[in-house]
């Protein structure tokens, strides 16, 4: 399911980005850093929709970098066990329950031939478990 959620992140900013554009620099760096990322806890961060507040910056010892706590609103996609949703089939491979037909267009067909599932079909499914693959959205 998609959620609109408020998240927080400590952003480190190089001093060369200070000045009147500090806020814009901070926000564009935030977008670059978090949009498209995935964590097991919050799921996929799809898009940042707004900034709630930017806290006071703290100069890091020895480096000159400044850390700003940023609260932002974003759209995340987080699947839950037991959730029902619709999906498009991208790949069909062998499993147990239904008849698997290999060949040019691999598909599942029920024994009476009334239902056929192949690539690009739309199916309604229930999530029985989730696994995080942080590098890819499937």
């Amino acid at each position: 399911m998609f959620f609109h959620i408020v998240l927080e992140r400590n952003m480190q900013l190089h001093p060369r980005h200070f000045g009147r554009n500090l806020r814009e620099n901070l926000v564009s760096k935030l977008m670059k850093d978090v949009e498209g990322t995935c964590s097991g806890r919050h799921g996929f961060v799809v898009a940042i929709t707004g900034i709630e507040n930017i806290g006071k910056g703290l100069i890091r010892d020895g480096t000159g970098f400044v850390t700003f706590p940023v609260k932002y609103q974003c759209v995340v996609f987080r699947p839950f066990k037991g959730e029902i949703l619709e999906a498009a089939v991208t790949m069909v491979n062998k499993a147990y329950d239904m008849e698997f037909q290999s060949g040019d267009i691999p598909n599942y067909t029920t024994s009476d031939g009334s239902v056929k599932i192949q690539k690009d079909c739309e199916v309604r499914l229930k999530i029985i478990g989730t696994r995080v693959d942080a590098t890819e959205i499937v």
């Binding site: 959620f3 609109h4 959620i5 898009a47 759209v75 037991g82 029902i84």
Partner: peptide, 30 residues
Amino acid sequence: ENASELKIGEEFLKAKCLMNCEVALILEHK
């Protein structure tokens, strides 16, 4: 966690759920 019994993490209870059509509007705008 089990969404069929509406058991989801605490931070998501405070968040607002979005329907697909709402997400489409937001993303298209962006």
